[in-house]
Write a protein that binds this DNA or RNA. Structure first.
Length: 927
RNA sequence: GCCCCCGUGGCGGAACGGCAGACGCUACGGACUUAAAAUCCGUUGACUUAACGGUCGUGCGGGUUCGAUUCCCGCCGGGGGCACCA
């Protein structure tokens, strides 16, 4: 071992901690230093410890942060723990230890592992989402949500008190569906009428209606909805946590059941969450995932009156993105859960409808999707009137229509919708083509009806549609919607796939809601001064096996008397995402006991300039956090509409490449038993046996997990950091290969020998004050330029290659110019900080290099006195010439033409064209 | 099915439309060593040639260009996301 990395790394890690080397400078003291907020996605401190995937992102942001500090930037680079959550609770139940204890222990282990990597965090800013001093503010933000509503005119969150005032002043009116609207003056009340009645003023409502209206407008509200209930885990789960009808954790059965749960009104922000993506420097694919998740579609709601309704005219409202195909609607489908089903089903159809609904009821959404191969459904016996041609069409129910999207009812256009087509074929319903791919010529006969063929869902030109014949799809949509709107049977509208966020869990290990429930189950916020509402220390935190959360067993915590009334505390807890929705704000001011973040500090540091983390949070954490941030922004608590300006997803580090034979059953073989045979691999011993090479995700069950502790013990943190960064581009997924680590180990050993010496042979490197020789000087300036550019572009693999190259050039020199040695140590520092600090101190410096200025390069020095120019003939390389760096174009062309290797290819031919790309190449086109 | 990304040596990967394979690993040869490890030096895309050299080569087929790994069109293969969303 040429250098003792264990001792060196320990020494500098202690130095950095003791001297608080990486403390961010508070805004008041920062003067006019530029700032950078460089953030990692904080980990969930699991019992398994750090995975090699964690250090990849952490090292990347660390290199970037260390570089920026050397460029004179005030850097905020913090780390913390997302420590509430199911795994800690599961473990606690299994081992019968309190989750508080296991969490503390796991955090300790994670902190140790992260510190052993020499990451330059400001440890005075560490946050822990399970600390009451932290979750006090998570609860406070929840209260902001609870005490706010979404103002539909301003399109932003505002205090609920403001709504009350607007209502009291008659500025808003209330539609029958409970939505609020700008007062259109008394005559216009009909315009915002719904199916039952017209809009009303606040004072026309009774006290209970008033309370319901207010509670129904809050951004955090309670609602009775069908949820994924998992008896085995004793909690509801989000759709993402359920796979094939079973819980992702533990594989317990999950059932649908209606429960009253806390919801957050994220759907109000759907438009802004889409619009504001445009200004963010995020991967395009990730923006696309968020857009898909929100799923905005523009279309129209159209009312279909029921035939034979006779007395009360009742209508079925459908949502469609293709109102231009109304003439092709030959039947309708309601979701089996649609409230109208009971009322419209004829007596004759009641048994089959009831049977079908029973069959559907037990299935989760996911099961319904899984069974989607074959269309199912039953006829209700009812008919509706197509408003464009007054044709009666049959009304069916089918599970391919979901109650949760649109209006839970569709008009079926089998000619132009694949699902409707399949359904129509199965139940022999008519199919009518109403869109043609080609414009129709005036006077030409109309296209015949298609018998049983499906046309296309693609836009085209309307046919068989008197109101809009010949119009291209976009125009046809506009026209028909406008015409029907005049008759009051259609209106343009926008729908989203995004659902409101189910925000409560029946778990112990989460933030308690700062909410009291009265005898009627209505929610009342506790006062801010009572925060934090601490999680009670109970000994029995196991799930109850019923929807009763474990906290309901905390009897002396549960009941509260206020103003002569008794209340019960909300016993659900918040989901794991709550704490991670705002942690980046707490880092800015982690010890503030008066506010969640000081506004002056917030304005200085926000937004986050670089956020690095895994793509698995694309539509969960990153969407939730943006939502909370926008609410806080609307309420004036933060200064930016978006939290994370630039975001990068680090790629997955896969397990080592595995080879196995292509036969059944596959037999594992090692790399050296294999050789390439044409396009594929084969066994060396038996070339007829084909071999497949694959890499897999690291997993315990596959046994290919790499433990960072062992790598650091065997090779050192600097080598580990270099290795992970050298693996390939940050964003790419790439396989781990322990064999390759020695390359980085050799590099650092060579650096040590070159700049310090070889302790075993008592050779001391001679670092002398002397001019840098010309060739070396050019490489040095090149390296300074390239490494800086590469760090700024997060291309660490090529930056390291350039450092290796410079070190290779130094190898074998009898004496090393001091200027080069110092520059090298500074440039190496972001990547391999421990050895760099050690080199720096060997060069006679007594303090850390963490804030020494980054070396500057001289563009003039990038040029040596001569340069080599490749010469092509007809685009093929035929020779090279060496010319003076300042040679004129004519001289270069003359030299190129005279080069013997080139002459061979041009002699006897006419040079038709001569191209010279300055400093780059010469190309003669001959013919 | 729809959307996005990617195909370069034995491996990981480099290359503003301008010398394909930087840099690292592996393998091979050599030096040092009693020996091994470590270290150092050299070779390492394929075919061809005694050699100088030549030909081919960035998944496949075409196009644009003096010149294409890079830009365009069409396939094939791999990965990821969404998926009865009306």
């Amino acid at each position: 071992m040429a250098y003792n990395f264990t001792a060196i790394e320990k020494k500098w890690q202690s130095y950095w901690l003791e001297n608080k080397t990486f403390a961010a400078i508070e805004p008041a003291e920062a003067g006019n230093m530029p700032k950078a907020y460089v953030l990692d996605m904080f980990p969930y401190p699991s019992g398994a410890g750090l995975h090699v995937g964690h250090p990849e992102g952490y090292t990347a942001t660390d290199i970037y942060s260390r570089y920026l500090r050397m460029k004179g930037v005030n850097v905020l680079h913090p780390m913390g723990w997302d420590a509430f959550g199911l795994p800690a609770e599961q473990f606690a139940i299994k081992e019968n230890v309190h989750p508080n204890l296991t969490t503390k222990k796991n955090i300790g282990n994670f902190r140790r592992q992260i510190q052993m990597l020499g990451l330059s965090y400001d440890w005075d800013r560490e946050v822990d989402t399970t600390d009451p001093g932290y979750y006090r503010w998570t609860q406070w933000i929840f209260l902001q949500l609870f005490n706010s509503y979404f103002n539909p005119i301003e399109k932003k969150a505002m205090p609920i008190a403001h709504l009350l005032q607007e209502l009291a002043n008659d500025n808003f009116v209330v539609a029958p569906d409970g939505s609020i609207h700008l007062n259109p003056t008394t005559e216009g009340m009909e315009a915002i009428a719904g199916q039952r009645g017209i809009a009303r003023l606040w004072r026309e409502l009774g006290p209970e209606e008033q309370r319901e209206l207010l509670d129904g407008q809050r951004l955090a509200y309670m609602d009775e909805i069908a949820v994924n209930w998992c008896p085995g885990l004793g909690t509801v789960l989000s759709n993402e946590e359920v796979i094939d009808g079973k819980s992702e954790v533990g594989g317990f059965a999950v059932e649908r059941r209606p429960m009253r749960q806390w919801m957050l009104r994220i759907t109000s922000y759907a438009d802004r969450l889409i619009e504001d993506l445009a200004g963010l420097q995020w991967p395009e694919s990730l923006k696309e995932m968020q857009r898909n998740w929100i799923g905005r579609s523009v279309g129209a709601e159209v009312d279909f009156d029921l035939a034979n309704a006779g007395d009360e005219s009742e209508a079925i409202t459908v949502f469609t993105t293709r109102p231009d195909t109304l003439y092709g609607a030959t039947y309708m489908v309601l979701s089996p859960e649609h409230p109208l089903v009971d009322r419209i089903t004829t007596d004759a159809q009641k048994p089959s409808v009831a049977q079908y609904r029973a069959q559907i009821a037990g299935k989760s959404d996911r099961e319904r999707l899984a069974d989607a191969k074959e269309k199912t459904g039953v006829f209700t016996g009812a008919f509706a009137i197509n408003p464009v041609n007054d044709e009666p069409i049959p009304v069916w129910i089918a599970d391919y229509v979901l109650m949760g999207y649109g209006t839970g009812a569709i008009m079926a256009v089998p000619a132009h919708d694949e699902r409707d087509f399949e359904f129509a074929i199965k139940f022999q319903l008519p199919i009518r083509q109403v869109v043609s791919p080609n414009p129709i010529v005036k006077g030409a006969p109309a296209n015949p009806l298609t018998p049983l063929g499906r046309a296309s869902a693609e836009p085209g030109y309307a046919i068989n549609s008197p109101m809009i014949d010949g119009l291209p799809t976009e125009e046809a949509k506009e026209r028909i919607t406008a015409e029907l709107a005049v008759e009051g049977v259609a209106n343009k509208c926008v729908k989203y796939k995004l659902r409101d966020w189910l925000f409560s869990r029946q778990r112990y290990w989460g933030e308690p809601f700062p909410i009291l429930l009265d005898d009627n189950g209505n929610a009342h916020a506790i006062d801010e001064s009572e925060l934090p509402l601490k999680l009670p220390e109970i000994s029995d935190f196991k799930p109850t096996g019923t929807p009763q959360p474990p906290l309901s067993k905390a009897t002396d915590w549960l009941n509260v008397a206020r103003d002569d009334k008794t209340f019960t505390r909300e016993t659900n807890t918040m989901p794991q995402w709550a704490g991670s929705c705002w942690y980046y704000l707490r880092y800015i001011d982690p010890k503030n006991s008066k506010r969640f973040v000081d506004p002056v500090k917030e304005r200085y540091w926000m937004p986050v300039d670089l956020y690095v983390g895994g793509v698995e949070h694309a539509v969960l954490h990153l969407l939730y956090a943006r939502f909370w941030h926008k609410v806080l922004f609307d309420l004036g608590h933060v200064s930016t509409p978006e939290p994370f300006n630039k975001l990068v997803n680090q790629g997955l580090i896969l397990g080592e490449m595995e080879y196995h034979t292509a036969q059944e059953p596959p037999v594992k073989v090692t790399e050296d038993q294999v050789e390439r045979k044409g396009e594929t691999f084969a066994l060396k011993s038996d070339p007829s046996v084909r071999v497949k090479a694959e890499c897999f995700k690291m997993s315990k069950s596959r046994g290919n997990v790499v433990n960072p502790d062992e790598i650091v013990r065997d090779y050192g943190a600097d080598t580990f950091r270099l290795y992970e960064m050298y693996l390939g581009p940050l964003e790419a997924s790439k396989p781990w290969n322990t064999r390759d680590i020695v390359g980085m180990m050799r590099f650092l050993n060579a650096v040590w020998r070159n700049f310090v010496g070889d302790e075993e042979s008592n050779k001391v490197a001679r670092v002398e004050v002397m001019p840098v020789p010309e060739g070396l000087e050019k490489q040095m300036h090149r390296t300074i330029k390239k490494v800086a550019e590469d760090i700024e572009g997060l291309r660490f693999n090529t930056a390291i290659a350039e450092l290796i190259k410079l070190n290779n050039e130094v190898t074998g020199l009898l004496a090393i110019p001091r200027e080069l040695a110092e520059n090298f140590a500074l440039m190496l520092a972001p990547f391999a900080p421990h050895i760099a600090e050690e080199l720096w101190s060997h060069l006679g410096h007594t303090k850390t290099l963490a804030r020494r200025p980054w070396p500057t390069f001289d563009p003039a020095k990038l040029q040596a006195s001569t340069m080599e120019i490749p010469v092509q003939v007809n685009g093929k390389l035929r020779g090279r010439i060496t010319v003076a760096a300042d040679a004129a174009e004519e001289a270069i062309l003359a030299a190129a033409g005279a080069d013997p290797a080139v002459k061979q290819w041009t002699d006897g031919k006419t040079v038709r064209k001569t191209l010279y790309v300055p400093q780059k190449l010469v190309n003669f086109v001959v013919g």
